[in-house]
Design a binder for these strands. Structure first.
Ligand SMILES: [Zn+2]
Length: 292
DNA sequence: CATGCCGGGCG
DNA sequence: CGCCCGGCATG
């Protein structure tokens, strides 16, 4: 944790690349609690989901390369709404999708299975509250979706949504991308497409010594994402994050990010400097300086 | 509890 | 209109 853990200073030019994220291993401590940028009070990056990759014991080097290609392809995939199958990654077309028998495709996340732990240091168990029931409809139907490129016969990946208090686990990238788009971004996938998406391979290590930490902008405390403990074929050999950079939560639809994440004048300037607020906020009306 | 803001009232 | 506030919703 000591030297491997970096706290990247967020200036408006900051944009971590693969190498930098790589440095975060094995502690895998991505700190993302800073809000800077002059464009708004809230610019930062958000982690969309984390990818745990498992692979068959035999294949080693190839997977690394292939996975890297896949991850690259993810970053520029133009996702068309309403057609779940379209995720034309340039690198992924050639693979024969020998989609493994992961069966349900969607690992149940809610409590029952002890596969995944989503501990907040010492906070409550953190199940997924309201999102759970809505989840069934949008996420349905992607069980059988074949991944393009990433579902190589030797590599299987599991994707965990990093949206606060969600933690849904899906087994395809199109799956969680759609999950995030529909449930968290309210259909605004364009945000994901237009904004800078970056993926990093964060842990090439063989063994998981420490628990990886993921900071999400809204949570002051680090959230901890643990790889599966039992049941899964093996411990993940790789862990990646896909994140949006320099996005303002004010860009996101209202109900998606909820109050307190899109900061308004009051939270930004504080009650003591009420004169700095926009007029609407002073009148207790809908803020106009930081609209939804 | 804090935050955001709708509805409504007053001059 | 500008201005203010009770009160509700939500985290
Ligand atoms: Zn305002």
């Amino acid at each position: 944790m000591p030297s491997a853990c970096r706290t990247p200073q967020m200036d408006r030019k900051y944009s971590p690349n693969l190498e930098e994220l790589h440095l975060l291993a094995p502690g895998f401590r991505c700190c993302c609690s800073v809000r800077v940028c002059e464009g708004g009070p809230d610019f930062t990056r958000i982690f969309l989901y984390v990818i745990f990759s498992f692979r068959s014991p035999e294949s080693v080097e190839m997977d690394e390369i292939m996975a890297a290609m896949v991850l690259t392809s993810l970053s520029c995939s133009p996702v068309v709404q309403s057609s779940p199958q379209t995720d034309p990654g340039p690198a992924g077309s050639s693979s024969s999708p020998a989609d493994m028998e992961c069966g349900g495709g969607e690992l149940s996340d809610s409590g029952s299975s002890g596969y995944w732990s989503w501990d907040h240091g010492n906070v409550s168990p953190a199940p997924s509250p309201s999102v759970t029931e809505m989840d069934s409809s949008p996420d349905e139907g992607l069980h059988m979706e074949l991944e393009q490129g990433e579902e190589l016969s030797s590599v299987r990946s599991v994707y965990r949504c990093l949206w606060p208090s969600c933690g849904k686990v899906l087994t395809s990238s199109v799956g969680i991308k759609r999950h995030i788009r529909v449930l968290h971004l309210g259909g605004y996938m364009s945000y994901i497409d237009t904004c800078h998406i970056q993926t990093g391979i964060c842990s090439p290590t063989q063994t998981w010594t420490s628990t990886p930490h993921l900071y999400w902008i809204t949570s002051p405390k680090p959230q901890t994402v643990s790889p599966p403990r039992n049941g899964s074929p093996c411990t993940p050999t790789r862990m990646s994050v896909l994140c949006l950079h320099h996005i303002s939560m004010n860009f996101l639809p209202r109900k998606v990010c909820g109050r307190g994440e899109a900061k308004k004048c009051r939270k930004v300037y504080g009650v003591e400097r009420k004169d700095q607020w926009c007029t609407a906020c002073r009148w207790k009306k809908a803020c106009q300086r930081f609209p939804d």
